[in-house]
């Protein structure tokens, strides 16, 4: 005791503290070196690149200030379309994913364990199979003449009811983006569903019992107890789904190539095409910066708006 009193905590210098914790730094080093080299450095380099006119030949790279950004917003119509499409896409997919996964979780949770894990497995299967596999199947399913979707829609009387000819889902400008959204929704539910089921498991039974004794209906219990207690999970799902969906790419590349008539252009598809098809690295990087700013600020506001009501 007297020893530690003789060397009070605050008298140790910064360097001494670092030296004493050297083991900890050694432990993080194997992760942090590649993190700096392959994550942090390229990130900063991407920021730098966005101010350059940069092609394949490094010797010809040229600093051009904000020209890339000015061009993006004043002279690149396709990018503006891609920007609108991406926002529309997020606005369609994210609410649907959140609502469906909460609905599924609430309905499935009281069911027997076997039923619960069957539903969970069914919705997680598309996550496991990955975008490429699903995109390939869905191209076939969406086909106007021999696709499964049109067959099912005809079977339930969809076309007869509306009195319209069969739709070529990916080939028509009105439906192409919606069709891609459907595919992305199909693989975005699995993870939130698992999270909501786990969160429901953490709500104490006593709370429900108390509410029932007070005569609350199932509907009231859902709105007044379940939903508020799910809020931290809802926030997490909302933010992660938004971030993921903003980066929609695989479905565009494999299913529509941005068409028809630019109806399915998205930001990341523009980045891919500019950088890896046209070799405009600087211009592509500028789009990456725009995406980063959009996603970063939206995630920030989601946390700000919803996070303050969450009690941890």
């Amino acid at each position: 005791m007297t020893v530690s009193a003789a060397y009070p905590e605050r008298r140790r210098t910064w360097w001494q503290k670092i030296w004493e914790a050297r083991a900890a730094y050694l432990f993080i080093l194997p992760a942090y070196i590649p993190f700096i080299v392959f994550v942090l450095y390229p990130l900063l380099n991407g920021l730098r690149l966005s101010f350059y006119e940069a092609g394949v030949n490094k010797a010809k790279w040229r600093f051009i200030g904000f020209d890339n950004f000015v061009r993006l917003f004043t002279r690149d119509d396709v990018f503006i379309i891609a920007l609108k499409n991406t926002f529309l896409f997020v606005l369609i997919v994210v609410p649907v994913v959140v609502v469906i996964s909460i609905f599924l979780a609430v309905i499935v949770y009281p069911l027997p364990r076997a039923a619960q894990s069957f539903v969970r497995m069914s919705f997680y299967m598309p996550v496991v199979s990955g975008g490429v596999v699903l995109a390939m199947v869905w191209i076939w399913i969406f086909n106007r003449d021999f696709g499964l979707l049109n067959y099912l829609l005809e079977a339930v009387g969809f076309y007869q009811l509306l009195g319209i000819p069969k739709i070529g889902w990916l080939a028509q400008t009105e439906t192409a983006l919606l069709s891609l959204a459907m595919v992305v929704i199909s693989w975005s539910i699995g993870q939130p569903l698992i999270l909501f089921l786990a969160a429901l498991g953490n709500i104490s039974e006593e709370l429900y019992d108390a509410a029932k004794i007070d005569g609350a209906s199932g509907w009231q219990i859902f709105w007044k107890i379940t939903l508020p207690l799910l809020q931290p999970t809802t926030l997490f799902v909302l933010v992660t789904t938004t971030i993921n969906v903003f980066q929609v790419f695989v479905v565009v590349l494999l299913m529509t190539l941005g068409g028809p008539a630019n109806a399915t252009q998205t930001i990341v598809y523009r980045i891919y095409e500019n950088a890896f098809v046209f070799y405009k690295y600087g211009y592509g990087a500028a789009m990456g910066v725009v995406l980063l700013i959009i996603v970063g600020s939206i995630a920030y506001f989601q946390f700000k708006l919803l996070g303050q009501e969450v009690e941890y």
């Binding site: 993190f35 990130l43 920021l47 971030i243």
Partner: peptide, 19 residues
């Protein structure tokens, strides 16, 4: 670490590709 995990990685895609 957390921040880069959350943010879209398309911005580092091009520099990493050049690397």
């Amino acid at each position: 670490l957390l921040l880069t995990m959350m943010l879209p990685k398309q911005i580092s895609l091009i520099p990493l590709f050049i690397m």
